[in-house]
Design a protein around this nucleic acid. Structure first.
Lengths: 117, 117
DNA sequence: CATTTATATGAATGTGTATTCATATGATAA
DNA sequence: TTATCATATGAATACACATTCATATAAATG
């Protein structure tokens, strides 16, 4: 059938388009790393907590429920990925969100929850 | 200092807000699962390829570069997570994007790449 | 200075999962 | 039906990483 030939051409063109528009490997790795950071429920909870504003580790631990060491390890991951930043205030260290894009992505995912598709 | 007392109150209020606005564990797991699916470069590539339109497995494999079995395994993961859907057309199986939200998140991440923060 | 408080870090453990290889399934064509 | 093409699947391997426990750092307080 002619249809099959046309489809084959169409799909071949799509492959070309895909290859042309495809970010390079480094860029894809960067995107993946960003998503990976958000993929862990424990980190997601921390970011949802920080959405309300700057908090110290103790308060974060309280808000997400869990153990201080685990929270500290996850905060390190978030900081290494420049998703949060921190500053010292006396004995405490205050963390806050440093990446607006990431919070947008979380918002999109959150909206997606109450969705009927 | 009075400031410290006020800060403490402020942060306490933030913890309350955070706890009140926090999605439940199941919802957070669902959000995390979505991000996790996008965290793997191989899957990200597949979705970027499918952004151009429906493609068969062979063409996807060609577009992302790699091995057929690996692509097939990743397509299964994407399908299980309802991020892609597929239909048979003769010998071939055509895959396409089934989740608009996910593509939005990928777009946000892509824009984030060319960003100076 | 010694102690306490807040946070960070290292090592160990366990779990999850991406990839590969070999092979199975399932549809088509001869 | 048999052979072939397109895709899927199972098992094995290897690696990444979240959590926990114990302990280290670093600032504040007495």
């Amino acid at each position: 059938m002619d249809n099959e030939i046309k489809e084959e051409e169409l799909h071949g063109a799509r492959v070309k388009t895909a290859l042309a528009d495809m970010p390079n490997d480094e860029q894809i790795a960067e995107m993946g790393a960003r998503f990976k950071t958000l993929s862990e429920p424990s980190r997601l909870k921390i970011l949802l907590a920080l959405a309300a504003g700057e908090l110290c580790v103790e308060h974060i631990t309280e808000a997400v429920g869990g153990n201080q060491s685990a929270v500290s390890h996850q905060l390190k991951t978030l900081k290494d990925n420049k998703i949060v930043k921190c500053r010292r205030a006396g004995k405490k260290i205050l963390y806050s969100v440093a990446d607006a894009h990431v919070m947008i992505m979380i918002e999109v995912a959150k909206e997606h929850l109450n969705c009927n598709d």
